[in-house]
């Protein structure tokens, strides 16, 4: 029931020139064992179709929490999030999430079954043969042809992330949510994956909301960057980055934007190690 409703939502046309995702004045809080923590404070932004929208900020700026909010895993204490005009209330297959952790793949399913599992349960396919066909086409897209019957534990970290991306893209969601998907990879693999992601975007023009703490990655991957201040996360700026790619890394323009964002984030703080991973 819920799955078919979600499927109908995927089919619905997006009005011309309207944002696909609107976030207005969202404050998010979560509880740990001893504390109640405000992760973001009155954040607003809009994502338009085919955006590669990046949430950028240091550890503890609530960017991952914000992504979980959009995915529907957390409810805002104030403000509103709308996907295609409809209020986000619960997780659904119209917003597929790709995580940083390698264990997001179901270890008891092969690469192909991981994708067909999503397609069948997410309400995209009712017939196994259709799901198979779509799964295979996306497995080839992420260059994993020949590995479709392999179990996840036999794959390298980069390959696992590719499967997760293929699984998310195969759902053809309204928006793909990526939570630092390349943060656990080595530098070379990370670069390669960034290029592949851009290649896939060129091919299908999906909309993606991408979380990262690396300024360089934000510039490379993003077309639009939302810069968040730390603890609690507030909007510092929304910048264009569509003109940057791997081709102009190190160019004056690239470095200038990099420095500008860096100053924005760390103006009033002691330099923080850029390689600090996922603390948010």
């Amino acid at each position: 029931m819920a799955a078919s409703a979600a499927a109908a939502a995927i089919e619905a046309p997006i009005p011309e020139g309207a944002p696909i995702l609107e976030v207005q004045g969202v404050t998010l809080q979560y509880k740990t064992r001893e504390h109640l923590i405000t992760a973001t404070y009155r954040v607003d932004f809009s994502v338009y179709p085919a955006d590669r929208f990046v949430l950028l900020g240091p550890s503890g700026c609530g960017k991952s929490t914000l992504l979980k909010g959009v995915a529907g895993f957390m409810k805002p204490v104030e403000g509103e999030m709308r996907l295609k005009g409809r209020r986000i209330a619960a997780p659904g297959p119209d917003r597929v999430m790709v995580f940083q952790e390698f264990d997001q793949l179901l270890p008891w399913k092969t690469v192909r079954q991981n994708i067909t599992f999503a397609l069948r349960n997410g309400g995209r396919c009712s017939r196994e043969s259709d799901a198979d066909e779509i799964a295979m086409s996306y497995i080839r897209k992420v260059k994993l042809g020949g590995f479709e019957n392999t179990y996840p534990h036999m794959l390298s970290g980069g390959m696992k992330q590719r499967v997760a991306i293929a699984r998310g893209m195969a759902m053809e969601p309204d928006i793909l949510l990526m939570d630092e998907p390349f943060a656990s990879l080595d530098a070379l693999t990370r670069r390669q994956m960034q290029e592949e992601l851009l290649g896939l975007w060129e091919e299908t023009r999906f909309t993606v909301l991408f979380v990262t703490h690396s300024i360089e990655e934000a510039l490379l991957v993003g077309s639009r960057i939302l810069v968040l201040s730390p603890h609690p996360g507030q909007v510092k700026a929304e910048l264009n980055a569509n003109q940057h790619s791997h081709a102009n890394v190190g160019s004056a323009e690239f470095t200038a934007l990099q420095t500008r964002i860096h100053d924005m984030l760390f103006a009033d703080r002691v330099l923080e190690d850029e390689t600090v991973r996922r603390g948010s």
Binding site: G17, K31, E34, H35, L36, I37, T38, Y41, Y48, P49, A50, D51, R52, R205, S223, R224, S229, H231, P232, Q234, V235, K236, A237, E238, L239, N240, N242
Partner: peptide, 25 residues
């Protein structure tokens, strides 16, 4: 193609005005 939009820059309000950021249960 992504819709072109102007850039925005804002100054976050001072943390002290937000009230409870972290409160013990």
């Amino acid at each position: 193609d992504p819709v072109p939009r102007p850039e925005i820059e804002r100054t976050p309000i001072d943390v002290r005005h937000i009230g409870q950021i972290e409160r013990p249960l």
